[in-house]
Amino acid sequence: MKMLKQTLPSILVLAAVVAVWWAVVVLTKSVIFPTPGEVVKGTLELARDGTLWEHIGASLFRVGAGFGLAVLFAIPLGLWMGWVHGAFVTLNPLFQILRPISPIAWIPIAILWFGVGNASPIFLIFIASVFPMIVQTTVGVHTIEKRFLRAAENFGVPRGKLFRRVVFPATLPQIIVGMRIGLGVAWLVVVAAEMIALRSGLGYMIIDSRNAGNRYDLVIAGMIIIGLIGLALDGFMRLLENMKSVRWRYVH
């Protein structure tokens, strides 16, 4: 009941948006802009002939590969930069300069280096998601409370155990925050990358639908699917925040 009370307003807003959209298209007698009904029809068509699933699969694969590589690279590097002061002062300026550059600006270089295959978008996704994860991991190490490090020092545990039992788990909540940001950016970037250089994926589907006969029903279908998958990915990352060993950081 409480759940219904909370979700009802948002459902009503969504319904209102769809209703207004529908009414406006009908009233203006637009020949290009589709009604919600036509979007659903177009989506079902693509789902039936299988191309929709291919595009979704292609996009998810690229995000998975680029984001996965970024995780493998950023977390060890961020831990190292957080723990070793020399590493931080040496590398941080470089990353602070690279970080504000939009991943979109890397597209020409990606094409130059990696061509128009899968490697380009994977590289762009890597570039997009690696910096927020490095930064968050480093911040996570820097903000470990001194009382915990002191306690660890007091018990005189070996270095490996210190990392495994204190530094890494103390940083994990921040790492997860970084991964959420990183995955969000990765999803934004894959669509943009696919619009330019590729022949598959949701971004390509949108551009191709427009170029090949003004199929705006499929353009909008692609947009909505991108939104829904992005929501699902973020929800998946939120599940990580519910792990009991990281709850402490979020409950206070």
Binding site: R147, F148, R150, A151, E153, N154, F155, G156, R165, V166, P169, A170, L172, S245, V246, W248, R249
Partner: peptide, 17 residues
Amino acid sequence: PNSKGIMITQQGSVFPW
């Protein structure tokens, strides 16, 4: 410091993770 003498403080330092 070493584990021959353990410190207990007001704030506490039980690892929350």
